[in-house]
Every structure is written in C-alpha cells, then in structure tokens.
C-alpha cells in the first residue's frame, strides 16, 4: 500500500431514530492494516455505525470516508467488503452458486474455489443455503466478502449465534486470511474475541467512544486490585495518600480502594484502622468493560 490515506475516517457521525440517539457524534480514524475491535454491549450503536460506514444507512450529521472516497464508491470498486449479522442469503441457491453469482458481480474477483477453501466451506459447496447451519451461513458470508480481495473488511458481530466450536473455526478462518495490508474492523460484544484478534479496541457506549487504545492499554485500564472493607467513617484522604492507590470510594459503611498494591492497603486497614471484612479482588478486562460501558446515568 502506497496510500497514506486512512482506511476509515468517521467524523462527528450522528444518527437518531425518533427520540433515541443511536450514534452520538462518533469520530474514529483507522489506519491501513489495523485490526480494530468495535466493542460494546448490545444497543451501543455498533451496527448503526457499521451501516453508515458501509453506506447502508445515511448519517443525520457527520461524514464517512473510506480509503479516501465515499462508501458507495469503495463498494462499487470492491475495496470494502462486509459480513453482516443476519439474513442476506438466498435459501434456494447452493453455497457454490451463491459464491459464483456474487463473483460475477465484480469486474475482478478471487476464484470461487479459493474463497470457499479459505472460508473452510469447500465441503458444502453443493449444499442448498437453506439447509446450512448458522455458522456455515456465516462462513459463506465471509467467503463472499473475500471475493473482491478488499482493502477493508468489516464484520458485524460475525460469530453471533455460533457455538464455541463454530466461533473458533470462524476466527481461525479469519486469521488464516489475515495478512499485511488488509484493514479489519469487527464489532463484537465478546471481550475475549476483541482481546484475541484485535490490535486495537474501541469501546463504545450509547453511541460514543468511551475508550480507544491498544489491547494492552485497554487491559491496563483494568489493572490492579480492588480492596473492600467495612469501615464506618473512613478517612478517605489518608487512604488516597497510600502509595499505589488510584481511587477511593466510600459507600455508606463500606470503603472501596482501587490500587496497584493491595497488600499495603490491607495492612494499613487492618493495623491502623478499625476496618473489618476485608476483601481483595482482582480486576480484569471484564470489569473494565463493565465499568466503561455500563450506563450509570440516572442510577
């Protein structure tokens, strides 16, 4: 790739459905070659954002640029391809026919046999789509997306509804295909998928980006431990002054301390204060995810 244009550039993207703001001034820049996970709970606006990104929905405000052009142009030139969440297949065509039909819509496409193989569905090429499992249909959608050899591949919750084995096989197929140059953006609400397959995680909540960084950076948000104790009238300032403490929160008689050094906090609490019921828990990516994506407003 000689182009220095971003693969994707979203700025101030906004979409409302009636009184609901699905996407709220979302801006994002993705460089060529990045593998980005769009991570958030259901209803966070991931699918709406992807629809606008692909030109399937029109933004109320803001703009979308894909590989320097508009989405329709990128689609017409086969530079972007997508695996959508549901539907979109003719039940009475076979898997092979669906691929060949779609291949013929491009001026240039990869051979049908090749994409069937890469998606791991060569064995069911003669099966009618209506008789394929959800996972097989999803791999067929993936095969279709491989046809134009796109510069940008967008996947909207590609493993929804698959069992564990199906998910594993799907990601294996995607990983087999992964090579330098292709930009991949996938939406998911599975943390482990984002963790395992993305270089960069964009956390979204209520149509906004609440965190954006490398997988390691996002994991750091969740570093440290949480010390909880029952301590009426806790001295918040004294606790916050301890080395390694990130935050202190008092909830009624309980005190919660987020820290990198839980031993030190525990020792302090047990030796210098009247604290009891001391609990130490480690925080993980799940906690960070919940903390960042759970709606506390109005609570």
């Amino acid at each position: 790739m000689t182009s220095t244009q971003p693969a994707v550039e979203l700025s101030g993207l906004t979409k409302t459905f009636g009184a609901v703001t699905a996407v709220d001034g979302l801006s994002l820049r993705v460089e060529p070659g990045e593998v980005v996970a769009f991570l958030g709970p259901n209803g966070a606006g991931k699918t709406t954002t992807i629809d606008m990104l692909l030109g399937l929905a029109r933004a109320d405000a803001g703009s979308v640029r894909i590989l320097g052009g508009d989405p329709a142009d990128a689609v017409a030139r086969g530079r972007v391809a997508a695996v959508l969440q549901t539907g979109g297949l003719l039940k009475d065509l076979t898997v092979g026919e669906t691929v060949r039909l779609t291949a013929n819509l491009y001026r240039h496409s990869r051979p049908a046999e090749e994409v069937l193989d890469r998606a791991g569905i060569t064995g069911i090429a003669d099966r009618v789509v209506g008789k394929c499992s959800g996972g097989q249909q999803q791999r067929l959608r993936f095969a279709l997306a491989l046809l134009p050899d796109p510069d940008l591949m967008v996947l909207d919750e590609p493993t929804t509804g698959m069992d564990v084995e199906g998910r594993r096989e799907f990601w294996q197929a995607l990983r087999r295909d992964a090579r330098s140059g292709r930009t991949v953006i996938f939406a998911t609400h599975y943390l482990d998928e984002a963790d395992a397959y993305a270089d960069r995680i964009v956390l979204v909540r209520q149509g906004r980006i609440v965190a954006d960084g490398t997988t390691a950076e996002i994991k750091n948000l969740a570093a440290g431990r949480l010390v909880r104790a029952t301590l009426p009238g806790a001295d918040q300032a004294a606790l916050a002054a301890l080395p390694g403490v990130d935050a202190v929160e008092v909830r009624g008689d309980s005190v919660l301390v987020r820290t990198a050094d839980s031993d030190l906090v525990a020792r302090h609490l047990l030796t210098r204060t009247a604290a009891r019921d001391v609990e130490i828990t480690s925080r993980n990516l799940e906690d960070a995810f919940l903390a960042l994506t759970t709606d506390h407003a109005g609570a």
Binding site: L56, V75, L84, G87, G88, L90, K91, Y106, R141
Partner: peptide, 16 residues
Amino acid sequence: TERALGWSRQLRLTPL
C-alpha cells in the same frame, strides 16, 4: 422475497 430475506441488502455490498 429477496427484500424480505435481506438479499437486496447483501447485494448493496457488491458493485451490482
């Protein structure tokens, strides 16, 4: 039928 099945939407991701 093809609109109901979402095939038309799928086709909109192709140059057709």
